Structure formats: structure tokens, C-alpha cells
Amino acid sequence: MPKVLVVATSHKTRGGITSVIKAHETGRQWKQFHCHWVQTHRDGPSWRKIMYFLLGMIDYLIRLPFCDIVHIHTADYGTEKRKRIFAWLSKLFRKKLIVHLHSSGPEFSIGGQYRDLYRYSFTHADKVILLSNTWREEVTRVFHLPEDKMKVLYNPCPIVKPSEAEERESYILFAGTLTHRKGYDDLIKAFALIADRFPLWRLKLAGNGEIEEGKHLVRELGMSDRVDFLGWINGEAKECAFRHASIYCLPSYSEGFPMGVLDAWAYHLPVVTTPVGGLPDVAIDGENTMLFSPGDIKELSEKLNMLMSDRLLYKKISNASIWFAEHKFNVFQITTELGQIYGSLK
């Protein structure tokens, strides 16, 4: 079987790409195709980032002559800039190249200032993996890639022990970086509009970022006793937050395919979110998710109100999350598809 070098950020880095690759590690294809994770970046001070890049490059150069496929995970401008040299070296050594795009923004779109940076990777790749049909259409429009070069592969739901109904507590959970792009501030404002109707409910925000700005907004709205800032959580703390939540909300303005939503589905949580990134591929308002327009705080408050007050609707959306986790985004199905992609490049 071919040997595969998986080039991506460190397994210690916070974020969706790391979560995706950790899920891929659980699949049969990881051992079947002798995958090795080349770690090229880690959060932290500049010296640590430089060290990880150099050590990753050394690891890559030592293993590159003996591999068959290079699978590069890339996202925004900074990631793509770092990964371009790995793509160039893979073609210099005549290896098969897979470029796996996790971007949440329009960097490569027509008029995007970094379009030419992405062009090399996309045009020289033997296969381009995209997170949704939406992104496949956009890449086709911008770069005119042949249809057989592109493959849509969804991010998988993690494997977890799903929550039981009796474990639920009355709180809405947000998990992600606290930035306006993720819409955490919109969620605080929307919750404030309905908080008086649901005195037993709380809002919990898990993630790093604009924590002080968020606390200031909460104080302005008189919601300090109803909103909790959990900071960045993982491991047991993350599991506890998802297991005991009753609703997951991600009011994002742009995404690739959000891992927070996949985590919520894995824990069978009903999801309130926006139709951005890859979500329109599968999300149907009122059927399997509760959707609202990005930035529409009033509509968000109405969707939360519906889910919190209508038990039949709550059960319906929860059951849809179970189906997503066990079928559409099942990690074994996704990793099997990834193995088929590797096999097609032999």
C-alpha cells in the first residue's frame, strides 16, 4: 500500500483541522496506508511556531523520498503560505498531491486578494478535497478545475458516548473562538431578548478570544448572572459541557464545515445555526436544524424561543442530530471514503 504523509498543524493546536485529523487517525485507512502526521505549526509565541515549522520540514524531507502521497491540510492565508513549499517539494519529488481545503473565508474567490497564492496548490494537486458542494462550486468557478480532480469529503462527527435526556441542564452552549465572525456577541444579545421568559436557562460560552469584550457586553445588558465564560476547554471539560447542554448555537458569519456543529450532533444536541459554509448541503430549517440569517439577532432569539418552548420540535431536531451522527457524518463512513481517495491515487 502507498505511504501517506499528512501535512497539517500540530496535534496540540486548538482548532478544527486538528480535530478532523484526530478523527481520521481512528479510521482503518490510517494504518492501511501507513499515514504519518507531519506537524508544521503550533499555537504560541513566535519561537515555538518557527521551531515547529523547522522540525516539521526536517521530518517531511526525511520521509518524502519514501512516501507515495502527500496529503496537505490548508485553510486561511497564513496556513496556505506555509504549506505552499510542502506542495512544491511534493511535485519536485513527483509524489501524488492531495490538497484538503478547510477555509472559512473568501480568500481564494474571484477578487480575493490571495487567489494567486492558492492557485499553485489547486492546479498542481492530483486531488482537491473540499468540505461541501458549496465550496466545490466556488473552486470550479474560480480555478476551472476538472470535475474528476475534486472530491467532497465531509468532516466527521467525533466518536463519543451520547448524552442521555436526564443529563441535560437548561443552558445554551456556544463553543468556538470568541470573535464577531463566530457571532458570539449576536448570541449574547439574542439571549438577552428572551432571558426573562426562561428564568431557569443560562448561556455558556466556551472558547478563547474576546472574553473581556464579551464580559463587558454582558454587563451592559445586565446579564452577568445568566452568562458564563468557560474559556478554552478540551478533554473532560469539553465532554462535560456538551453532555449537559440542552441546545448548541453557532451564529457564525462564515465557516468551512464547523466542527462545533459536528460535536453537537455527536452528543445529539439540537443545533441553532446559520446557513454558511457547507451547512446548506444538509441543513433544513425546522426539519433537522434551526436556521437564521447571519447577524439577525431578532430571528435568532425567535429560533431559540421556539426550541426552548416546544418539546415536540425540540425532540424532532434532536432526533435529526442523532441521524447525522450515526449516518451522514459517521466517522467510519468518512474515513472509508478517505481511504478510497488514497486508493485511487496508487
Rank of each mutant, 00 (worst) to 15 (best):
F122N: 02
P106T: 04
K12L: 10
W201D: 12
G295F: 06
I98M: 06
G56D: 00
D285S: 09
W323I: 08
F191D: 05
A206G: 14
G44S: 08
I172W: 01
A23E: 05
G183P: 01
D68L: 02
W88E: 00
S293T: 15
G278V: 14
F332N: 08
T336N: 14
S121Y: 00
F257S: 10
R202N: 01
P270L: 12
Y77C: 03
K182I: 12
G295N: 03
T177D: 04
E147V: 14
P45W: 03
G209R: 01
C157A: 08
S309H: 07
K316W: 07
H11G: 09
P258R: 02
H268T: 08
L304A: 08
I50V: 13
S121E: 02
S293Q: 15
L203F: 13
H102F: 05
T273I: 03
E107L: 01
K151Y: 10
Y171N: 06
M51L: 15
F242P: 00
G214F: 14
V272F: 04
V142F: 04
E299V: 08
V261G: 07
E138M: 03
R197S: 15
G235H: 09
Y52G: 04
E147D: 14
P65M: 06
R181K: 12
W135E: 14
L291E: 07
F329E: 05
D186G: 04
G15W: 05
S252L: 01
D228M: 11
A192N: 15
Y314Q: 13
Y154I: 09
I21F: 03
V282P: 14
V99G: 00
F242I: 03
P65T: 05
K96Q: 12
Q340C: 10
S104A: 14
I159Q: 10
I172E: 02
T18N: 00
E220D: 15
H327L: 07
T335L: 07
M290V: 11
G295A: 10
G183I: 04
H100Y: 06
D43A: 00
M57V: 12
A283C: 11
I233L: 15
S321R: 02
F174Q: 01
R136I: 07
L193R: 15
L205T: 01
M57F: 11
I21S: 03
K315T: 11
W135G: 06
K31T: 14
F174H: 09
V142T: 13
E166Y: 10
V6P: 04
T26K: 12
K3C: 00
K83D: 00
A190D: 12
R14Q: 06
I110Q: 08
I322Q: 13
G111W: 08
R82K: 07
F122T: 05
I62F: 13
L153G: 05
E80S: 10
P294I: 04
R119S: 01
A245W: 12
F191V: 10
I58N: 03
H73E: 05
